[in-house]
Design a protein around this nucleic acid. Structure first.
Lengths: 232, 232
DNA sequence: GTTTGTGAACCGTTTCACAGCA
DNA sequence: TGCTGTGAAACGGTTCACAAAC
């Protein structure tokens, strides 16, 4: 019932992480969690967790914490994962096939119900029990199967066209694996997953860290001591 | 030469996107870009682009814009992609194999030079010309091959152990595909790619949009008109 | 003692707006 | 005229700190 307040994006992202941890705790039959424990598992502070849960209108019990199961359910509702989402995958290449094979999606509210590819060489082949269909079937299939979201796993050059086809077919959201900004109307939601950017962000971090270490070594040539949080 | 100032994370992420666009423009032999054009291609404002480039200490020419090639090179240097990075992949499952097959990494400063897997059934098999090695070879291989970064593509349950092995072996950064927060020392950089979170963020967006539309329909039952930026 | 809920202070980033240069 | 560079203002999110609840 609580769940129509505006949720800032950073909060929405963390909710997803809280949910994962809550499911883990539920499986272990832990009944309550403190904001502190929940925060630690996802790299957030306790205050942050409380703010986030406040935003979605969920309350805990002072001195006790939050009910694991009830909280998980509340988050699912806010995120929208309480219903099952049906997805169409476009692109049966390496990434596409890996996604279809990712069995756990199904248990988490997502299901890839159709696979498409532009290449005649691939159309008709079977990927994880799904027959790869030609792009010409897209619109009809999206309508018939009640598909909500499209997954774009094609090369950058064709990604924009595919996105437009998906939008025309009526999907409400697109998960884009192509390294290109796709422009779709603002009625359609869009999330990008970009390996190259992820790697570049990583090496940038590594580089900055190296520079920082050289600096530290020069300006403070003693043994460094920092508080807390060491990793085994 | 310019490139040791502190770069805020949001800026670093956009630099990665600018670089892609600059490479595309370079291929088309466009010589200069305006902040406006560059911004549009990645979904940022012109002011944002100028601020970002200012941060990395790169200047353009008033009335003209930025030199495409020079800017690309400057960004590569800041990101750290001017050198070639060597990666070890752990986990030869679906995602792992998709990553190895991702040929374009190589042209972009990254190379997966070794693949590891814990399962004896997989060890010894060949993935894209690389023989899958047992985990016991990890430390020696990382040292011998001069590997900088590790890619974790194993199930959530083993991810933390793998991360610790990688850190012990001496990698400086980890790209994590497992849906779990991995704790490593703060000397090691870490970037997460999480399909489930991405999907959840997407459906959350879709849900919010639906709510917003219902709202709009109720409170303002006229044809909506908003300025700018429509997509074909 | 533990832990929540939250106003207030804080901080980093984005946007604005305009002077200055080509 | 077109576009950059940049202080100053605005914004949004995070952290702090503490009263209230168990």
């Amino acid at each position: 019932m609580a769940g129509n307040a505006r949720v800032p994006r950073p909060t929405a992202q963390r909710l997803s992480l809280y949910l994962r941890e809550l499911e883990r705790l539920g499986a272990i039959e832990q009944v309550t969690v403190s904001s502190r424990q929940l925060g630690e598992s996802v790299g957030a502070t306790d205050a942050q967790v409380r703010k986030d849960l406040g935003i979605i209108g969920h309350s805990g019990m002072p001195g006790i914490g939050y009910q694991v199961m009830a909280l998980a359910e509340a988050i699912r509702e806010v995120i929208g994962v309480h219903k099952q989402w049906r997805a169409a995958l476009v692109g049966a290449g390496n990434i596409g096939r890996a996604l279809v094979a990712y069995r756990s999606f199904h248990e988490q509210g997502f299901e890839i119900v159709a696979v498409f590819d532009a290449s005649p060489a691939v159309v008709g082949r079977t990927v994880a029990q799904l027959r790869v269909r030609p792009m010409t079937d897209l619109a009809a299939t999206v309508a018939r199967e009640g598909i909500d979201i499209g997954i774009v796993a094609v090369p950058a050059e064709s990604a924009q066209d595919v996105a437009e086809d998906l939008v025309a077919a009526g999907v409400r959201g697109i998960l884009n694996f192509a390294p290109r900004l796709l422009s779709v109307g603002k009625r359609v939601a869009m999330v990008n997953v970009d390996f190259r950017s992820a790697l570049e962000n990583l090496v940038h971090d590594v580089s900055q860290r190296e520079i920082a270490e050289i600096f530290a070594a020069v300006s403070k040539p003693t043994v460094r001591r920092r508080r807390g949080r060491g990793a085994a």
